[in-house]
Amino acid sequence: MQDGAAHWVMEALSRYEAALLRYATTLVGRSLAADVVQDTFLELCRAKREQVEGHLAAWLFTVCKHRALDVGKRERRLRSLEEAHVDEIPDSGPVSKLERREAASRVSAALAGLPEREREALVLKLDGGLSYKEIAEVMGLTPSNVGFILHGALKRLQREIVGEAEVPVRAAGRTS
């Protein structure tokens, strides 16, 4: 083992673990997020550094997302077999009611109430520090889609948080 390589992965871990954990939490809930993030870094251990470098963040969030989707799907399947737990199945997006109730502040409540796509893009942007382009990679969109989604999300939040009755919408003519 090379210390350099170990250092590199561990450095990535300390830099991104918090953001990845929060991201995974929005996708699969708190109890499974740690497993998902562990698996993500296990992947990173096996990847070649020069192939990840330059888009490490996008790589990590993409692997994390796919791992989360898979774990989440299996978990839901398992749970649906145990009827006793049926009411714990997330009803609108992966953030459970319980966790939503826990969200104390108005901001996090507004955030939790966003459509899944908007919340995901916001978490990637503000928490993960990803660029539009990187978010586009993770979410399978184009960078301009990402701008559009984030813009919509921020407008919606502004209405929720500030309680403004109407946030102005401007339109611009664009040639495409």
């Binding site: 083992m1 170990a6 561990m10 673990e17 954990l21 562990q38 870094f41």
Partner: peptide
């Protein structure tokens, strides 16, 4: 938030045994 110690240890072990692909 941070990954707990057993999981960190698991990653360090993976690094120790991993060979670049």
């Amino acid at each position: 938030v941070a990954l707990d110690e057993p999981r960190r240890e698991r990653i360090r072990q993976e690094l120790a045994s991993a060979t670049p692909r």
